[in-house]
Amino acid sequence: MKITTIALNTFKEAKRDRVLYLLFFFVAVCLLFSRFLALLTVGDRVKIIKDVGLASISLFGMLMAILMGTGLVYKEIDKKTIFTLLSKPIHRAEFLLGKFLGLVLTIFIMTVLMTAVFMLILFLHTFAVDWKILLAILYIFFELCLMTAVALLFSTFTTPILASLYSLAFYLIGHLSWSLEMLIKKVKSGAGRVALRVLYTVLPDLENFNFKTEVVHNLPIPGKLLGVSFIYGVVYTAFLLLLAMLVFRRRDFV
């Protein structure tokens, strides 16, 4: 109940965040660009639209998650609104969870809006609805939830600018770490390989949520992979939130 109240208030505040309108505008421009591009290319224009569309939803969603996620908790501390809030009988963990859920709700609605625009543009080109696209977007959304937790974690101990940089680094590492897996296959077994394995396990692998290629090129997606990716997302996000709570628990608000 307390968590819901905080989440809804966070949503209310996030709605007022100019970041949202700006990024939404950019998505619109981006999608129009894909349309423009499609006009020039004779070949598989639909594939390009899908590609660019999914990539922009993922990119702009990520920017929203990072910019808002790092800003909202910091603002509460910086503007000292957190004093009154935490003087009520609520746990700091409840506060963080409320913030997280409020942000996730915001991101969800933004994703739905972007998807609607995207699907409309696509429909105007194909006059058919490709439902598989939604599956790819669902997993983009899971990734955005994870990124929100990342941003929240960093924002519990540092300024929005640094937290954004750290989150961005996390995002980049997360999308490059799969190449480690390729490397592991090429390295002979031994200490080096074990070290690489450990590194790969510790580092996030955000490519787990990437089903863009499969969807765009209409390749089969094994159900088991979807299941594993989903569980990976839930566990990783929970882990990040737990870490954020631990940092937040003993923090002084001066």
Binding site: N9, K12, T84, S87, P89
Partner: peptide
């Protein structure tokens, strides 16, 4: 803190809420 009420030194509150919404928020909490 169940039975405690607190007024901070320089009240810092969500400035986008109206007075009524502000009280409603804390009541919900």
């Amino acid at each position: 803190r169940q039975k405690v009420g607190f007024l901070p030194e320089n009240p810092y509150f969500y400035d986008y809420l109206t007075g009524r919404e502000f009280l409603a928020f804390y009541a919900d909490l």
